[in-house]
Write a protein that binds this DNA or RNA. Structure first.
Lengths: 228, 228
DNA sequence: ACCTGAACACCGTTCAAGT
DNA sequence: ACCTGAACACCGTTCAAGT
């Protein structure tokens, strides 16, 4: 098996790496679900004693932070500056949600913990801020817009990670409106070939961007008296 | 202290109740944070051995489910049927978020776990469905609208539970746009006397309801050729 | 510097033994 | 029926001892 045939003392060459630990953690998370990221689990997979990890990693929180960086590296900010702000936001939110959806077990793990100010994360925010500021958004509104959109993305990712039958009126009597809405949606989902959480995500995203566009248009109109 | 002066054997009258356990769990959660809901922690607070809880509760998941019911009982569906659908949704979302915000440590705990189909929760969904259906929303859209709004509410609650300095460009160089957006928002927050997460929530909620109202108006217009 | 091995202080849960 | 007490199978983390 993976029993450590290694005896005590420093090995001739290092077996572990910080990067190797993080990658293994993410892989186990995907393969085995939320409890796959345990120190002992990772150690066993790497053929090593749990305590060995502490030579490369500060502890469990450090590992989770590393996994988060791996996942959020997939967030796409390339639209800002080249596309209209609302399309750039759309691409950003979509890739944000897809990054987490690609690793469902990480969502519950990562969404909950506050992200310590990582350099790469902060750089991502800087790029989004730049895009919105250049597009003409009032600077004091920028972070509020970002955070509200981000809240939706994370909430939608959580919904995606939940089991499909979570929202279900069941078989019994009662709940007539819930039930009829449920079957009507099921039919809709089948004909469109999309998941319930996927449709809710796209709907919410479109709705938010439509609302933001309306606010933006009103701001522009108020600033340019010509249109009045 | 709270050392159990009780000796073995069945007590003359029951010390525990399912309800008492749930209430204690919620209180400890509020007082001590996320790890307050541990079986051993609750048992100590109640002056009882951990194993005693298992006479009234199936286990930890059962307790968390009970806490969720306590919290989500505060969700207000009274607007449906009496207010316009968008105002009823606004009241619902606001109370939904406030219910969790009143117990910050529960957010991370509850948002992550799929809610097993509780009767009271399902009844809540039934009321919201009824309100939207009666207002004239296409029945196959109803659940999608609810879920997308709910995703935002939960995401915003998560954001609320996170530490305030989570999003912070820091002191160093670089990140100029992030930094200037940050100080501009800080000034805005101070003059309006509101928290960052509070403003993001209200902004997102307004934006979503504006977007939904636009979609609804378009649906109504498409159905009544008179306006064409 | 980087591993093993033992130990520590925790968990949730089960179950026989008591009354 | 409902509690105690002991036990079980887990955690993450620390640290001396090895090479």
């Amino acid at each position: 098996m993976t029993a450590p045939a290694r005896r005590s003392g420093r090995p001739r060459e290092s077996v572990l790496t910080r990067e190797l630990i993080m990658n293994t953690a993410l892989r186990l998370l995907d393969e085995r679900g939320e409890q796959g990221a345990g120190i002992r689990e990772i150690a066993r997979e790497l053929g090593v004693r749990p305590s060995a990890l502490y030579n490369h990693v500060r502890g469990q929180d450090d590992i989770i932070g590393g996994v988060r960086e791996l996942v959020s590296d997939r967030i796409d900010t390339s639209g800002f500056g080249v596309l209209p702000w609302n399309e750039a936001l759309h691409r950003w939110a979509l890739s944000y949600r897809n990054a987490f959806a690609a690793h469902p077990p990480t969502i519950a793990l990562l969404a909950v913990r506050p992200l310590e100010p990582g350099l790469r994360t902060n750089h991502m925010y800087d790029e989004v801020c730049e895009g919105l500021i250049e597009a003409g958004w009032p600077i004091e509104r920028v972070l509020t817009v970002i955070v509200s959109l981000e809240s939706f993305v994370l909430g939608a990712a959580l919904d995606e990670a939940a089991p499909d039958d979570m929202l279900d009126p069941g078989e019994g009597a009662g709940l007539p409106h819930f039930r009829s809405a449920y079957v009507a949606r099921a039919r809709e989902l089948e004909t469109r070939g999309i998941s319930a959480s996927g449709l809710a995500f796209h709907t919410g995203l479109d709705v938010m961007l439509a609302g933001l566009s309306a606010e933006f248009a009103a701001l522009v109109a108020a600033k340019s008296p010509l249109v009045r």
